[in-house]
Structure formats: structure tokens, C-alpha cells
């Protein structure tokens, strides 16, 4: 049954749909949170001169390659009942997975946003100064005018979040029907030797990522045409 995952997809297998929708829910929420933190941080690093700024940029760029298991382990230790935030009792829940993924991809979004915003800032800086636009106004303008490039940064973050397994399996526990995502399901099926199902799930994951990227590409192209970006 090489196509078993596709068969389940077509026949609307509820367990499979729960896995897919949990994956999307966790990674999209994590991307949203990472955007709320990463975009302003990227803008800050692009616009503001402060002591240690270059060090922060180097660190943020380095953290882009942070291994998911390391993030997973750190979040696990924080959220474990024996850890500092244990009293909230959210280890082995989707919330813990969202936190881990948000931490994982915030540096990616921040670093890519910083690059985009810095490039745009070089162009806009004098014009905005001449129009007496302050820092907050400048950030808002740069985020808005750079929105199509920033969308790519968000997608890069989402792609990494939805593809990673190391962090979610540690902090989520891969609980059937509760914290099982596509990637942890793939890891589980592989360990059970059910390679066709694992491959099928992998193909479904790939299709979803391709579909979301195609949508974003379309939005971006349309937007650029409207905004006349070059």
C-alpha cells in the first residue's frame, strides 16, 4: 500500500486530518508569534545604532541554524514539572509545541526581516527624514512597503516550523490524537518499519508546503505588480 496516506487523505480519514490540522495550527500560530517578535526585532536591528548591535546581528544570524532538538530540550527543561515554569503544566501539550517552534523560527524571521528592512531603509532613509517621519512611523512604513519580501521571511519561518521534528517530539511527546503532528507521525511510522505510510505522510507534508508557497508566490507577484516594486 504505497499510497495508503493518499488513500486516507482522499477518504477523509479523521485521524489523518487531525494530524494535518494540528500541524498547521501549531506551525501557523508559532509563525504568527514569531512574526510579532521577529519583525520588530529585525526592524530595530536595521534602523537603530546601539552598542553591541553587530554582536546581536551575528548572534541572530547564527541562531537561524539552531538545531531544533536543542530548542526542544531547552523548552522541555523550562516547562517540565521540575523546571522553572513547570507549574503551568503545559509540557506535552500543543501549547508547548507552539512555544518551541516560535523560539526556533523567531531568529529566522528577525534575520531575514532585518536584511529586507535594511535594504529598503537605505533607499527610504533620506526621503523619510525629509518628511519628518519619526522612528515608529519609519518602521511602520518599511514594514508595509516591504510586506511582500517580509512575507517570504514568514514563509521561510513557517517552512522550518512545519518541517522540524526534533523540538515538537521532545516537548509534545507525540501523543496520539493530541500532540501528534505530521513530522512526529512520520518519525513514528518509520520506527515501526511502516515505510510506505511514512513516505506517504512525507509526500502529503511536501504537498502542503508546496501549496502554501505557491499561494504566497501568487500573492507576492500580484502585490508587487500593484505596488510597482522592482
Amino acid at each position: 500500500m504505497f499510497s495508503s496516506a493518499f488513500w486516507m487523505l482522499i477518504t477523509g480519514d479523521p485521524a489523518l486530518y487531525r494530524i494535518i490540522s494540528l500541524s498547521l495550527y501549531v506551525s501557523l500560530t508559532a509563525t504568527l508569534i514569531a512574526a510579532l517578535a521577529g519583525l520588530p526585532l529585525g526592524a530595530l536591528l536595521a534602523l537603530k545604532e546601539f552598542p553591541g548591535r553587530n554582536a546581536v546581528i551575528v548572534i541572530v544570524n547564527a541562531l537561524m541554524g539552531m538545531p531544533p532538538v536543542v530548542v526542544g530540550l531547552a523548552v522541555f527543561l523550562l516547562l517540565s514539572r521540575s523546571g522553572p515554569l513547570g507549574s503551568f503544566g503545559i509540557l506535552f501539550t500543543p501549547r508547548a509545541m507552539i512555544i518551541a517552534q516560535a523560539i526556533l523560527i523567531t531568529p529566522i524571521i528577525a534575520a531575514l526581516a532585518r536584511q529586507t528592512i535594511a535594504d529598503l531603509w537605505v533607499q527610504y532613509r533620506d526621503e523619510l527624514a525629509a518628511m519628518n517621519v519619526g522612528t515608529a512611523g519609519s518602521v511602520a512604513t518599511l514594514l508595509w512597503d516591504g510586506r511582500f519580501s517580509l512575507l517570504t521571511a514568514l514563509l521561510a519561518g513557517f517552512g522550518r516550523a512545519s518541517a522540524e521534528v526534533g523540538a515538537v517530539i521532545i516537548v509534545g511527546g507525540n501523543i496520539d490524537g493530541f500532540t501528534r503532528t505530521m513530522t512526529t507521525a512520520i518519525a513514528l511510522e518509520t520506527s515501526k518499519g511502516d515505510l510506505p505510510l511514512a513516505i506517504g505522510l512525507g509526500a502529503v507534508l511536501l504537498l502542503i508546503v508546496i501549496a502554501i508557497n505557491a499561494l504566497a508566490w501568487f500573492v507576492r507577484r500580484t502585490g508587487e505588480r500593484l505596488a510597482g516594486a522592482t
Binding site: 508569534i33 517578535a37 526585532l41 546581536v56 548572534i59 541572530v60 541562531l63 523548552v75 523550562l78 515554569l85 503551568f88 503545559i90 501549547r95 507552539i98 512555544i99 516560535a102 523560539i103 523567531t106 531568529p107
Partner: peptide, 21 residues
Amino acid sequence: MFKLNHAIAMGLIVLGAAAGQ
């Protein structure tokens, strides 16, 4: 960086805990 993420995590947990009650 860590502090920021820590703050985010804290905020999330508080929000989540409130919503999850």
C-alpha cells in the same frame, strides 16, 4: 535574544493558562 524569547514564552504561558482555565 534569550530574554526576549523567555518573555514571549512567559507571555504565552500566561495567556494560554488564562484561556485554558
